[in-house]
Amino acid sequence: MQLELRHLHAVCQIAEAGSLGGAARRLGVSQPALSAQLRRIERVTGGELFVRGRHGVEPTPLGEYVLAKARRVLSEMDALGAETRAMAADTPLRLGCILLVLLDGLLAQTDLALAGREIALYQEDSVTALVRMLGAGRYDLVVYGEVNDHEVPLPAGTVARTLVGKEPFCIRMSEHHPLAAREVLDLADLAGEQWMTLVEDDDGGPEALVAACAKAGFVPSLRYRITDRKMHHDLIAAGRAISLTQPTAPPAAGTVMRPLFGAPITGRIRLAWNRSAVSARQAELLYRAAAGAYLANVDNNPFHRLWWDAHPEAHPAPE
């Protein structure tokens, strides 16, 4: 048997996961199958690469040596794939997104950042589907959100970077709602309302809403789930529902947006990309493009501008 890239990848996954079981889940194989593969790799390398420790498996001195070489080889292969793909001008960059407010300006910003490179933009309603297709090579880069402490597990071979570390969700309601005159809303005052559920149901949003409402003393009535933005806004304008929304969302006729006292529900925005498809230079340009698209919407609502200026730790990382 000769060592192949998949063997090097397996060794790296075992080291990163800290256990055979964790690595097997990442690789999508059974633990016995991974154990058998590791034994074959160790026969080729001439000794044990890992030993079982109190907290899982740990690399042996030989394992540390093989890991250093494996990481270098895999990094070079990732760079080769990304650079050759970037040189193929007729190959579009495939960008997958969740319905975020910055999506409206993202395409224009990426056109400026990657002048001359065709970009194919796709929209998904599920974060799980988005990252699964990233891992399968259907997308080169994805932009997605996470709510409160929820973390989306990413496939092997990808890199993630936080764009916006934190943003407080606010409430969109009818301009005729009895609470619309208030500058800030207390979540407890929204008990008994009909809620428009979030489009994504696997980013931690529904759980965060239910948990926040429970702390406020009620169970939210989650009635509507509508992906069409105009219909979503029309139902709210008619007084039939309220909804959580990003604080950068633009105005909509017949509705108002109000912040929640204490920011009980927050989100963050992240980018993730395939190392074999997106070069480090491209990733940096795309990050800047997404940051520009987000910052263009900060002034959509004065209350968010005030919050944003007071929380520099949430801002995109400087160049």
Rank of each mutant, 00 (worst) to 15 (best):
G28N: 13
S35C: 04
A290S: 13
H176D: 13
D201N: 09
L222S: 08
A310F: 01
D125A: 13
A216Q: 02
L95H: 10
T227M: 03
H311Y: 02
Q282H: 07
L244Q: 00
A241N: 02
A115R: 06
R72D: 14
R305Q: 06
A317V: 09
V44E: 08
G53H: 06
R225I: 03
I119G: 00
Q246E: 15
S276P: 04
R54W: 11
A263H: 14
L187P: 08
C97T: 15
P316N: 12
K230A: 14
G81L: 11
E118C: 00
E207R: 07
R268C: 12
I171D: 01
V164Y: 03
V51Q: 09
A238P: 01
R240A: 14
L5K: 11
A36I: 03
R94W: 01
L106N: 05
G137C: 05
V219R: 13
E175N: 03
R258M: 02
H311D: 05
A283W: 12
S126D: 10
A252V: 01
E48V: 02
R39V: 13
H55C: 02
I269E: 08
G137L: 08
S126G: 06
G254M: 03
R305G: 00
Q246F: 05
G81P: 07
M231D: 15
H55N: 10
G105T: 02
G267L: 12
L209E: 03
P312Y: 09
A280R: 14
A120D: 11
G165I: 01
H233W: 04
R305H: 00
A89T: 07
V73S: 04
P318W: 12
V159H: 12
A156L: 15
L112F: 01
L106P: 04
C12M: 09
P178I: 06
S75N: 14
R40P: 08
L27I: 06
A129R: 15
G217N: 07
L49V: 04
T45I: 05
G137A: 07
A238V: 04
P302N: 03
V298K: 04
L141Q: 05
D309T: 12
W307D: 01
G21Y: 05
M196F: 01
I269G: 02
I269P: 00
P61N: 11
M77A: 15
N297Q: 15
L286T: 01
A191P: 11
H7I: 03
L5P: 00
A291I: 10
A113D: 01
G18W: 04
V199W: 09
L222K: 11
R54E: 12
P247V: 08
A277D: 11
N300C: 06
I265C: 09
